[in-house]
Design a protein around this nucleic acid. Structure first.
Lengths: 339, 339
DNA sequence: CTGAAAGCGCTAACAA
DNA sequence: TTGTTAGCGCTTTCAG
């Protein structure tokens, strides 16, 4: 068993309280005593019991982080950003909501039972009234949403400018001479709705047509992107570019395009989003969008830390919107030879 | 503030103990009382305070997981495997050792302070006597090593058969007709030493030469792989195949090879290991090795759970070796036209 | 400068 | 079937 403060106190003929204060370097303990205490603590390999400490202080120095899928490098980056401010004083418990609203709800409850100091979450899209996060407001546990925003805009949040993503990608393709630009979206995700809006805005502002059949519901995974792309490639006349909601879908689309014997970008230009690892060394290096996941996590963590520190005064919720960057690679091509 | 058992007890005119037992469904509480208690608990949204519970039970239901880098999908898979048995009763705190032995040591100490029930770790390679994990033995906290093994073979561990990896890859290349096979290794990693041993064993058993200059120290990242490959490509006569210690290094090598205007696999065959995501859609689909990270995590977690449950009787440490699988894609090529 | 008393929220032993 | 007593290891408040 590990040593407790009581062990130290007894060996030194002191009270536990004195030991406690000596270890925390209180000014009202003599240097002499402090030294005796810290020396013995060191020798006995004393480590404070955080559980006991938490029970009395009401702080665990544990943060919850709920994300829908850790196999997306995007969320790993967010978690690294969070950890960059959480460490070394706080630990993070990462839980996977698997995109399931029910699971998210129950995970929030179990995290509350653990008395986490705060929570950061990429929320599962809210499809009906009533939020899983309301309970956090009720209990006064600070939280910050990342990547996705809930309908109700009263929470702390750090997101990327999704409209801008759609707009930026589309305008780039337009600038390259494309006139028939398809879009693989994922209805049900607010994020997708916004990117699509940006896409449509860009087309409109350039007075380009935006046919309904060009927008195909695919989903955020490779499989969905593959199927959606196949539908798009069957259209007459064929779109000359595809903007996929994310890189996973884009990779699915890439497979579909190449499988059909078409070339990227010569026959079909392709753009994704989230800038996955190795995007530069794919069969066709993928033009994508840096959504700043690390900064998202870092910023969210800063807001959270602040909220935890000043828990008494309820500050107005902060909403940060980060600006995305287009990462141009081969898959979008350069200017079209024939517009 | 959230409700406590005391609130329930007072409202019902019961003692806290009765409430406690009613909630945990003890047989010696009347059905009547149980119902009253659980109903009120539900109505008051009572959630047990895990911190308080831990203090008395001595169990936190928190497991530590130390890995060197979460941006390797490999370790994410391990963590998912772990979680598949940990959930829903236990939470996992993942900490990044960043491959730094000092950091690993201090992380272990802070996790101990949190009174974790057990630990799973991909240990930083031990370069000198004395292990960061000794303290766990002393404190009687069960732990399981994954992916990498420490020198001292007395701990629970789940690893992939690394010698087999080297052997399997090399024999496959030999079978394809290659006679000059280079290897990018990463000295300092036991894992690398073993894979290299497998590589050498395979060459030897086929009575093939194994020139010292064919083994180039690169490291486990892309940059190292790139530089090592450049050295290899400069050799005369040039090796016809490269076995890289892992996929990251392989990708670096791929860049180096293509940059030189050489073709993969026609001019130089390439094999990595760990089977990264999207290996099938790289510029040259990469032949790699499935090291079974998910099973590694799962198995380790099962051993850990078992050890936690039977903490009293010290069971003999278990060492599991998982068998790797070769995933053949384009980069290794098919049979060489001219042997 | 140090200690005694109280308590965080819960569970384990023993009594009634 | 329920309650009383004690205590997990620590910090906070108040006395000395």
């Amino acid at each position: 068993m590990s040593a407790t403060m009581r062990d130290i106190a007894e060996q030194l003929g002191l009270s536990v309280v004195t030991v406690s204060r000596a270890l925390r370097n209180y000014p009202d303990i003599s240097t002499e005593t402090k030294k005796r205490v810290t020396d013995l603590a060191c020798k006995m390999r004393y480590r404070p019991d955080q559980v006991a400490r938490s029970l009395v202080t009401g702080r665990t120095h544990v943060w919850g982080l709920i994300i829908p899928d850790l196999t997306h490098a995007f969320f790993v980056e967010i978690s690294k950003g969070v950890d960059s401010v959480a460490a070394p004083d706080n630990h993070i418990i990462i839980v996977d909501s698997e995109g399931d609203r029910k699971k998210e709800a129950s995970e929030i409850l179990t995290l509350l039972g653990r008395k986490i100091d705060g929570l950061i979450a990429a929320p599962v899209q809210e499809t009906y009234a009533g939020s899983n996060f309301d309970i956090l407001d009720e209990e006064g546990i600070p939280y910050v949403l990342v990547d996705r925003l809930l309908k109700r805009h009263t929470a702390n949040a750090v997101v990327c400018d999704n409209i801008r993503i759609g707009q930026m990608v589309t305008e780039h393709l337009i600038g390259l001479g494309h006139r028939r630009i398809a879009h693989i979206n994922s209805p049900g995700f607010e994020v997708s709705r916004l990117r699509q809006k940006g896409y449509q805005t860009a087309l409109k502002s350039h007075r380009l047509p935006c046919l309904a059949e060009w927008i195909v519901s695919g989903g955020i995974d490779e499989r969905g992107g593959y199927q959606a792309a196949r539908r798009i490639l069957g259209l007459q006349p064929r779109p000359t570019a595809i903007f996929a909601i994310n890189d996973r879908a884009a990779i699915g689309a890439m497979k579909a395009i190449l499988e059909k014997g078409l070339r990227i970008p010569e026959d079909v230009a392709l753009v994704g989003s989230s800038n996955i690892p190795n995007a530069d060394v794919l069969r066709v290096p993928l033009t994508s969008v840096d959504q700043r996941p690390w900064e998202t996590g870092r910023k969210a963590a800063e807001i959270l830390r602040n909220a935890i520190e000043n828990r008494r005064q309820k500050n107005a919720p902060q909403q940060i919107v980060l600006q995305p960057t287009l990462i141009i690679r081969d898959s979008c091509g350069s200017e079209l030879p024939t517009a």
